[in-house]
Write a protein that binds this DNA or RNA. Sequence first.
DNA 1: GCTCGAATTGGACTGAGTCCAGTGTGACTC
DNA 2: GAGTCACACTGGACTCAGTCCAATTCGAGC
Lengths: 138, 138
Amino acid sequence: MSDLLERLRGRGWRMTAQRRVVAEVLDGDHVHLTADEVHARAVAKLPEISRATVYNTLGELVTLGEVLEVATDKRAKRYDPNAHRPHHHLVCAQCGAIRDVHPTGNPMADLPDSERFGFTVSDVEVTYRGVCPNCAAA
Amino acid sequence: MSDLLERLRGRGWRMTAQRRVVAEVLDGDHVHLTADEVHARAVAKLPEISRATVYNTLGELVTLGEVLEVATDKRAKRYDPNAHRPHHHLVCAQCGAIRDVHPTGNPMADLPDSERFGFTVSDVEVTYRGVCPNCAAA
DNA sequence: GCTCGAATTGGACTGAGTCCAGTGTGACTC
DNA sequence: GAGTCACACTGGACTCAGTCCAATTCGAGC
């Protein structure tokens, strides 16, 4: 994670306590927090941090490509720090749990030119939906 | 489209002017309106229709499987009447335009058991992102 | 035509996210 | 180590999408 901070500093980011805290909160695998959850965890480490700052910082991390925005179909966007390794998502339709997955195959190659409508296609996002073991047991 | 109305009547739907108007608005290929757009078009045909009714009706159409909810990453959900033929979406990252696409390949088969984390996977959704010809020209 | 339960209304409410003017503070310079 | 200043942060008001609810209306079976 400290390499993230390094990279950010290298990009001319002014390092502030708030940004450091947000970066620390977004650490680990299978982490997919909403902005509010990030805020809640950040407040635990730095009580004065404001919601607006969390949104700003997340937005910057996304435009820098260090964090991915994941729009499952729940209301709130989620933020995924695992941006350095391409992956897709498996979402529980009941509880909303999210896992990172790595399907075989290359969906990019599966879209014939005739189906591109003149678009310059740059990215694919695959979302598997199902029911997680916890919810299936309940 | 009138077959949609037929199917709905067959399912015991009480046929009201409001529901008919919403069903009429959602007609055609590559139609992906937000709830507010549906409401605006419905109002043009039936001025007294309320937002709540449009939301209710869209929600019912979704649970009946006659219409799909599409969550691109814009704020508002979009509604896709083309639910009878499986397809995926190609979204313009700049203007938000959406096209229905039919990739070859079967992404469902591309997710090995080891990557399913015990989930019962029932559905896949593939979203291609890129830039549409209009935005590329601008 | 009557009846009754389902559908509609519209206005208040919620939750997620954005905006902005004023204040604070990293980091560069000396 | 102090001074400077542009960039970052704050918090409160605001927007926008969507939900809720009590009162009213209305479709369709009799």
